[in-house]
């Protein structure tokens, strides 16, 4: 706000002052006068969900007067991300946005960035809170837990025996989702039993093996909740391989491209995620606001074409889950 006013003439200043309460009602506004450099550092390059973020970010960068760079490590390693951060610090970027491979390992490097005056916006997967200015959470954990449960129990029934197929035992988001799944089940479907929890290490082949293990060891399982991109593909492939399509249902957190065939064949009836392209746009919008110093730790703002968002203790929840099914999946290409 301050910078905005200063850029206006004397007469306009009075006007601006007089209308500023109106602006304040709208919350934080970006000031696009100065061109800034913003980098987006995904967990690794070449994964389609992150490319979808990039696609949205590129669109938004044009409107916000941003030099945009999408760069990241070749493999999903925290060390690779730190290498990239270090180079961005040396190149004096204004904002670094990132989804972290590991919340603790990235912290020292991002704290160095913040000390150098760079704003840090985490999205998707958070870093340690002291190492970022803002965090954009995909969806709230309870909402996603509910969406995961509903998209399986609707078909497997309220007294089904289900299994969980996750990525790794220490994956932050997955564990939060599994926690939300469990508490939603306890509150809404107390008869549902979780009979097995396996891990596919985010690898499609290991997830397939884990999926086969579940189905062979527990023939009475009729639902697999697999809240990981590779896990849901592995679970779906395992169901198909054992000819259990229509008897066992799975759901997860995957981009539509990866599960399109399973949604069409009916192995997956519904699978929730969120609109990654739109999220990429929001990331850049928040980056702009952060660079302008226009966003407070607790605040509200309206991003044109995206909606109104609330900042609560530096955390912004992006959206409600977006559930893909056979009828809508072809509208989303990422």
């Amino acid at each position: 706000m301050n910078r905005r006013r200063r850029s206006l003439g004397g007469a306009a200043l009075a006007l601006a002052l007089s209308v500023s309460p109106l602006f304040a009602a709208d919350g934080a506004m970006p000031d696009t006068a100065k061109r800034i450099k913003v980098a987006m550092v995904p967990k690794l390059v070449g994964l389609s969900v992150f490319k979808a973020n990039e696609q949205g970010a590129i669109a938004e960068a044009k409107d916000l007067n941003i030099d945009f760079l999408y760069t990241g490590p070749v493999t999903a390693s925290a060390q690779g991300q730190v290498d990239v951060f270090n180079s961005l610090i040396a190149r004096k970027f204004d904002v670094i946005t990132t989804t972290s491979n590991n919340p603790t390992q990235l912290a020292p490097s991002l704290e160095r960035a913040m000390k150098a005056g760079i704003k840090v916006v985490a999205y998707d997967s958070d870093v340690a809170p002291q190492a970022r200015d803002f965090f954009i959470q995909n969806t709230s954990y309870p909402a996603f837990g509910k969406a995961l449960v509903e998209s399986v129990i609707k078909y497997a029934g309220p007294d089904a025996k289900i299994a969980i197929l996750s990525s790794t035992p220490d994956a932050t988001i997955q564990n939060e989702w599994i926690g939300a799944v469990k508490s939603y089940l306890a509150a809404t479907y107390p008869k549902v039993q979780i009979v097995a929890t396996e891990y596919g290490q985010s690898s499609p082949s290991q997830s397939l093996t884990a999926g086969l293990n579940i189905l062979q060891a527990h023939p009475d399982v009729t639902g697999i909740i697999a809240p990981d991109g590779a896990a849901v593909v592995g679970a779906a492939a395992a169901i198909e391989k054992l000819g259990k399509t229509g008897k066992v249902f799975t759901t997860g957190a995957s981009n539509p491209d990866a599960v399109r065939q399973y949604v069409k064949s009916g192995v997956i009836k519904e699978t929730p995620l969120w609109d990654e392209v739109k999220e990429g746009r929001l990331v850049l919008y928040v980056a702009r606001l952060a660079a302008d110093g226009a966003l407070k730790d607790n605040d509200t703002f309206t991003a044109p074409g995206l909606g109104t968002y609330e900042v609560k203790d530096k955390v912004i929840v992006f959206s409600e889950p977006l559930v893909f099914d056979a009828s809508n999946i072809d509208q989303y290409k990422f």
Binding site: A78, Q79, V82, Q105
Partner: peptide
């Protein structure tokens, strides 16, 4: 030294 640099340890930190 990596543990010190990252102020954290991970079971896969040496892989690189």
């Amino acid at each position: 030294v990596l543990a010190s640099y990252y102020d954290a340890v991970r079971p896969d930190m040496g892989d690189v």
